[in-house]
Design a protein around this nucleic acid. Structure first.
Lengths: 270, 270
DNA sequence: ATTGACAATCTCATAATATCGGATTTTCTT
DNA sequence: AAGAAAATCCGATATTATGAGATTGTCAAT
């Protein structure tokens, strides 16, 4: 009866499945806070949830008590301080981030361009770390931002190393995007293209986001050779240094391998 | 084995009240991820929750679907990517942070020491922003970290400008800390000391965290003159420049006032 | 301080739905 | 490809989330 959640705006993990109960319903509140609407009144929140006042207030109170929401003023809420705290917690302890310490910096020094650390998240790719070259422009792709999984070296190289079942589940959801990204118009064609990338162990792209910008990326792999993330660098073609493309590829692959090994060593110890 | 949920470690909003239902119980999972234990197995999580396997898995799944948890490998979880994403969202839209853009940088330039932006959170103070002076040492108090509310200029100055009822609720919970922080051993003494700080509109401290370190802070206030945060700077006494303490106080107060005004202007528009 | 206006919480009967053990399916290792 | 382990599904039960209205708490102005 609670006719909540417009199917169009849901975008959950699994296609459009009914949200999994009140717990998920409550967490949906967090999704409402966007760049376009970063501050919500209780009234609007309750309206958006299509629930009773009591329940709405209870959800808000629960999230508030957990620190995930905070009142900016009387009856107006924003994402809460606990999120900032947890982000620090992640920065200090995330295994992949830990494993990449120093490696990204070395990579930047070696090739003179900014480097990114990416991870797969919900059929897309999230930037979780970056190391900027000395006087490079501020990156438009930085920690916390997402990109589609079918464009850019850093994304595709993860895609190619995803476990079988993940790909199988993902393909039907994104047939059109995959085709328009030149990744094949059939399942077997798709698998073949990914197989090629996988064989190379890296990917070089040109102008997939910004015209004239090169991208190189290599996957960060688990013991079973499936991707947990990737390392990537990008540079403008007329900003080219004496650096050879091959050299960049080598450096990126080396960085990715180093991180992968460290990561696997860490897991063996726990 | 993992003896969770000890009343001592809870530290919820209201004294020690029974957790408010399954929603809060699920969110408690997030509190388990600490520096000491950043990665948890499903088995240990369920053990810690003291619930059935089914329910434990359902909680984990719900949090996973929301992106608040992520699997680092088979059956092991960490805080999830959605948190990183939401942190960026906050950095891009948080009113206080927006209002402080440029102001903190100007302050640093004026006095040559790193500046911090703080906010009140759960009977403590959280750092939400910082601007580092050119070649200053990496700050030990940076974004995402918490400090007690009764030590340090940045904390006390917020405390002094907290709304009446907040103080009244807070005092009995922290009598001992307040007394040992020289903030008075009775309620009226406490109120008087805070009143003095309030009158000055700023606070100067010496060596409350690190010996020989000066701290200056001023409050960020709402229309009704209650604190939402503070601006602070700190420097070592033998690192003193030709800068006068008075000059620093003035600069900090100016920064805090500017941020307060911007904040109030923003609210008038929405 | 007192009041009025609004926001947030509380009360409590009702039934919706979270819960649990066990079976089933999915996922991972050999 | 088969076996082992993990995660999900299933359905009966009662715990507990829900919602309308009353109450309390909070805020701004007199």
């Amino acid at each position: 009866m609670v006719e909540r959640g417009l199917p169009t705006s849901v975008g959950e993990t699994t296609e459009n499945s009914e949200s999994g109960g009140s717990l998920a319903r409550m967490l949906q509140i967090l999704e409402l806070f966007t760049d376009a609407g970063p501050v919500w009144s209780t009234a609007d929140l309750i309206e958006a949830l299509q629930t009773s006042r009591s329940t709405g207030y209870r959800y808000i109170k629960t999230l508030h008590d957990a620190g995930l929401l905070t009142a900016v003023r009387n009856g107006y809420y924003t994402l809460g301080p606990r999120i900032i705290e947890m982000d620090l917690q992640i920065r200090q302890t995330d295994p992949m981030l830990m494993a990449s310490h120093g490696v990204l910096e070395d990579l930047v020094e070696k090739i003179g361009h900014s480097a990114l650390l990416l991870t797969a998240f919900r059929d897309s790719v999230l930037c979780i770390g970056e190391s900027r070259a000395p006087r490079s422009p501020e990156n438009r792709f930085s920690r916390g931002q997402r990109r589609p999984m079918f464009q850019g070296a850093g994304s595709k190289v993860i895609l190619a190393h995803l476990p079988h079942h993940r790909l199988k589940a993902l393909y039907p959801r994104h047939r059109v995007e995959i085709e328009s990204a030149q990744l094949g118009s059939t399942w077997s064609e798709f698998r073949k293209k990914l197989g090629d990338i996988k064989k190379d162990g890296h990917l070089l792209t040109l102008g997939e986001f910004n015209p004239g910008v090169y991208g190189v990326a290599a996957p960060i792999l688990t013991d079973q050779k499936t991707a947990v993330g990737s390392v990537g660098v990008a540079w403008d073609e007329n900003e080219r240094r004496d650096l050879d493309v091959k050299q960049a590829v080598g450096a990126v692959k080396y960085a990715a391998t180093t991180i992968s090994e460290r990561l696997q060593d860490m897991q063996r110890q726990s």
